[in-house]
């Protein structure tokens, strides 16, 4: 059966920030290939023109007045945070700074 290479699966898993168990990789090699082959059909479709539909609405964006609205109490803002630290949100040290 047609399948993606291990590296290709690992690459898209990294883009999506999903770690994969050893036993999943093989399944995804097949699954992802099936889906990708399917969407490849688009290459054969001839479109009318280059115009793109980014949203189906025909109206233009209406702009908001520059006024300050309601804000969250910081306790409320922290309510669902898995790891908070005082009134900050805590994460493992960021690597790129």
């Amino acid at each position: 059966m047609n399948k993606l290479s291990r590296e290709e699966v690992e690459h898209v898993a990294h883009l999506a920030r999903i770690s994969l168990e050893e036993n999943e990789i093989e399944k995804y090699q097949i699954d992802l290939k099936m889906l990708m082959d399917d969407v490849d059909k688009i290459k054969d479709i001839k479109n009318y023109d280059e115009e793109m539909l980014i949203t189906p609405v025909s109206h233009k964006a209406e702009l908001r007045k520059d006024e300050v609205g309601e804000m969250l109490d910081y306790k409320e803002a922290m309510k669902n945070v898995p790891r908070s630290n005082g009134n900050f949100v805590e994460v493992p040290v960021m690597i790129n700074e």
Partner: peptide, 25 residues
Amino acid sequence: KSKIFSSSANNYGKMANTCTNVIDL
């Protein structure tokens, strides 16, 4: 006065996480 995509205040130097709403989060 307010942020680009939400109506929270665009303020510098306020206590951490006091100028937010669900959109900013």
